[in-house]
Design a protein around this nucleic acid. Structure first.
Lengths: 217, 217, 217, 217
DNA sequence: TATGAATGAGGTTTCATTCAT
DNA sequence: GATGAATGAAACCTCATTCAT
């Protein structure tokens, strides 16, 4: 399954009846927003890149902001959170005995996801701070649901004595920092340099696992 | 020393001969760029907020981009890196025996710095990805110098057997992730909620220290 | 007979083969043109209000202007003048002895007409000044025919010594001003306030009759 | 005193500090709005006619609507009503014994006013029905004040036995219809034809005076 | 016949920048 | 140095109209 079609599958989940041109518009918008930022992108640029007339954009999206939301909102509401949660369920059902195995699965999974959807994720990251609606959507659909799931998982590992006894939110913050830092370092800072993926991942996992391990009695 | 004057001190280091109006322009620009993003901010808006005429901005800064650079560049070149390095020197001279003490000092120091200069840091974070000059400046003046310093420090602690034997860049990535994650969580995600600063900091320090500690032989 | 069907009857006089959609389009156009003015009304708005596709309008009316003309032209050519003339004939055939009786009949008749077709009349009033074709049509089909008829009637009353001996056009101007002023005051200025229709009409009739009565010898 | 400068005097009453270009914009806007209607006039057309850049319009008037209001509102608030009232005062102070003399003065005065400001009056007439703010302003600043004044005058003539004893509003309606009908016939319908101004005016005055005269006892 | 996606010209408005004062 | 009117290119958006289905 190619990245392209996968991306469209996701954005199309509820809009199967999408024109070819509309798809082109979405693709062009994602690419340009990601490269230059939302505010610095002009609709005429998107139209040109999509190979459509500028008016066509506004037939499908009432405003430029609408176009942004139609990219970011489903990414957060239907893509990020559900995927996350589904993965976590899978992870739980598989009943990884070790926190380490669980962490490894999550990192690999999210890493792949990030690689596939980097442009759209970059847009989210860049625009959420400037658009209160997006911020609210993020908190509601992503953050809160994430916390709920994570709390349950962490507590189960804490009961097993594999994680130190601190609030699950703190566990989440520390783990997420490491994972996101790993992804960002990988994709943004050193995109082409010497970087042993396998090794760095192992180092990250070891770091988190040891960092969160309980003190010996 | 008030935050205001401190901010201006920094941006003024090389431009002692700055008019009152110019200072007002800088302040207004920082505030607005931070709130709405560079591309979404109009110069007329800055002028209004600064209480100057629209033309006055262009008397001091040839273009709007110039204004951005005059905020971000010195922040990175003279503010971020030098401060960092100076602190590190202090830290080293004081010869903290424990890596833990060193880490604690760094976190407290950077935390204060971030609190004081949040708007300007937000601008950097948001705009660096879209402006190649800034990206280069960042890598050259901040990232590379940081790595140089850090490498030296990490290796000294590795020699003391307090840090696991992995590449200093990995140590830096893992530590920085935790610190930056701590700061972002503190300032962006939970700006007003229940958050025990002291405790969370201790948890973060413990996490990094344990996470980087060498395996027992 | 409902107002709706009556309206369509009139506009349909020569176009018996009008589809249901076409009727809907005409109704929607009349309503919207009247509310917002021709230039400020978009064809898509009409389409939406009529419940048809945007393209359907242009299947029946080559241009937007065509749509306007197809409303205004028949209203003037077949609706306004003929009705007027027919009434006048009736009036004359009945041979009202008194100018006063004649005037009363005209006012009542036109008042009812105006109430029934206010939107379409408003469109005519608003758009005639901006469209030379309409202006010509108005002068040719309404104004000139009206004058011809009126001249004959006025002269007959002048012969009877019931109207002062001034040019019929002046009589027409003065009478029309009073009648139109009456209708506008009634429909536009005081649409809901205290207004005794019966009494105001009597006052208007008395005003015109006395105003046009010959000087006593 | 030329019509041009007079017009600007009026619109400038409160804005003495108006750019030359701004005046040009106002003139061009009045001319074009009057000719083609507000909605059918483009700002680029106004700019071209005024000999300024399109942006210049929006430096002085935030929106196109603003430009309309800046023409119509003062015309109604400061021009129409006050002039009217001042004239009426003059008229009263001069203590015209006869209602006929009073009427003659009013007709002449308003006729001149209409001739001078026809374009701007046409704009008012055309646009008030489509803009609720304007409608309210008209009722508040023109209509209500007019009624107040007129009531007083009419009643004084009714006491003198020169006007029939009907409500002053009815007197006003009938008189205004005749005057406005006179002006419109003169300026719109027969702008160039054979029309003896002097005679038509006398006929109108006679018509109103006789039409409103009390019944002989 | 009816549709509605697509168009592109043109509409209103914004904005960085210039320049006479 | 400071102003703010002026600019004109370009931004976002609308709309009458066309055309493949």
């Amino acid at each position: 399954m190619s990245e392209q079609s996968d991306f469209l599958d996701i954005l199309l989940e509820n809009h199967e009846n999408m024109t070819e041109k509309q798809k082109k518009i979405l693709e062009a918008a994602v690419e340009t927003f990601s490269e230059k930022g939302y505010a610095a992108t002009s609709t005429s640029e998107i139209a040109k890149k999509a190979g459509v007339a500028e008016g066509t954009i506004f037939r499908h999206y009432k405003t430029k902001k609408d176009l942004l939301l139609s990219i970011v909102a489903p990414t957060m509401a239907k893509l990020l959170a559900p995927f996350f949660i589904r993965d976590f369920n899978k992870v739980l059902l598989n009943d990884y005995g070790d926190f380490e195995d669980f962490l490894r699965a999550v990192i690999i999974n999210r890493m792949e996801f990030a690689k596939k959807h980097m442009p759209i994720l970059k847009i989210c990251l860049q625009e959420i701070p400037f658009h209160p609606e997006l911020k609210n959507q993020f908190i509601e659909h992503v953050f809160n649901k994430l916390i709920g799931r994570f709390k349950y998982i962490v507590e189960s590992y804490q009961k097993k004595g594999q994680i130190i006894d601190i609030p699950p939110t703190s566990v989440m913050r520390l783990s997420a920092s490491a994972i996101i830092g790993f992804i960002l370092a990988r994709t943004l800072l050193v995109p082409e340099s010497e970087w042993d993926d396998e090794q760095e991942m192992e180092r990250t996992i070891r770091f988190v696992v040891k960092g969160l391990s309980p003190d010996p009695k």
